[in-house]
Design a protein around this nucleic acid. Sequence first.
DNA 1: TTATTACAGATTGTTGACAATGCACAATCA
DNA 2: TGATTGTGCATTGTCAACAATCTGTAATAA
Lengths: 229, 229
Amino acid sequence: MSETVADSTDAALALVQRASLTSLVADAVEKRILSGELMPGSKLNEATIADRFGVSRGPLREAFRRLEECGLIRQEKNRGAYVRKIELDEAADIYDVRAGLDATAGRLLATRISAEQVKALRVLTDEMQEVVSREDVDRFHILNLAFHDRVIDYAGNRSLIEVYSRLVKQLALFRRRNLLVPRAIPRFADEHSAIVDCLAAGNVLASAEALYQHAMGGKARMLEQRFVA
Amino acid sequence: MSETVADSTDAALALVQRASLTSLVADAVEKRILSGELMPGSKLNEATIADRFGVSRGPLREAFRRLEECGLIRQEKNRGAYVRKIELDEAADIYDVRAGLDATAGRLLATRISAEQVKALRVLTDEMQEVVSREDVDRFHILNLAFHDRVIDYAGNRSLIEVYSRLVKQLALFRRRNLLVPRAIPRFADEHSAIVDCLAAGNVLASAEALYQHAMGGKARMLEQRFVA
DNA sequence: TTATTACAGATTGTTGACAATGCACAATCA
DNA sequence: TGATTGTGCATTGTCAACAATCTGTAATAA
């Protein structure tokens, strides 16, 4: 019990030592944007938000600058800040770049993947194959995200992780019901398995191409749904 | 003459309307960092810099947040801001990602390049081939930068341009006399020509691979020089 | 001597106030 | 009526002052 207290106070201490109001507010606003609580196009009133978080406008404005540079909000001089709206063509651009980053991750990972990492990815792809039969879309979605996160992580490139997560955040501003279409799941599961095969075999070009095409498939799905909806 | 006045006042007006002190200061500091006037590791004193630009610390701190998010400076709580220092391994990571982005640009551009764009690139590669014989390293350097900028631009993807320029800026923090080695120039010139050939032929995979390998050659050169110096 | 503490100056973090700008609505005039 | 101008309010831009923290130095004690 005292440990719990010690842990929490330690955590609080570390928080105070490392985190500034600016960073805390930036994280909080970012979270609300990514969760959809703050919708694209929403006006972000400085005084209102500063009050809500119990800080003055100074730190908040600094947080806004960070979020602007992240591409999550847009600021117009003398007119205020708005949650960034990402149009279809812009989302398509981001998808292309992300596909390229996936390919890069594949190139890098194919030359360095460990047996343990292959195994960890296989655990995911195996469960995905299982899930296909159950048609558990939600579970597949989680596994899908985990799979791609791991591929990027395992590539072991900090710059890649940074750039990739940046794009993923921006794409969160564009999710218009891009839920998985059940009928597409079997194909995705197979593609994941094929990707792991390429990686495990150390085939650089095949890994890159498999990941690229897989990501571009995701883009195509996004574009379809846009026009259906 | 009145036109000149009108132009300059128009420009001034546009500047005042669009640019905030924050953005102006951020640009100015960024410029000084990229030019090497502010060296990696330098302490950035808020009061001193604010005074130099004739602004208060508020806008300057906002500018710092932007630069921090750009990866050009690093801020430690209660200790201040420093020009970011990029170590060798980090630069290597960035080079890998940039190579991947070059490959992505190749993929995209190979499917959409126009005759005019091919021609424009050929103008550059032709002059590069000329320059090889003259061993004009400086001129080659300029042509080299122009070539890669155009390939990215012609790819016509805003997200790619944004991410790419971000990485280029970060790499500027690491240039330790990575000037071109004269003996490497002929090979680079040939590679540029080959890249344009692939693009003009609309060969997606070959374009991507040629640009990727070309960029990785640049990385290798950087690593060599690091150990020679 | 060496380590510890106390203090002072400098620097960063945060705030509230004031100035400048934009926006919406009312008043005016053709 | 319709367009334009003027006015007040809300909001953003900027600043200077204050609080909190850090750093280096001097004083103290073992």
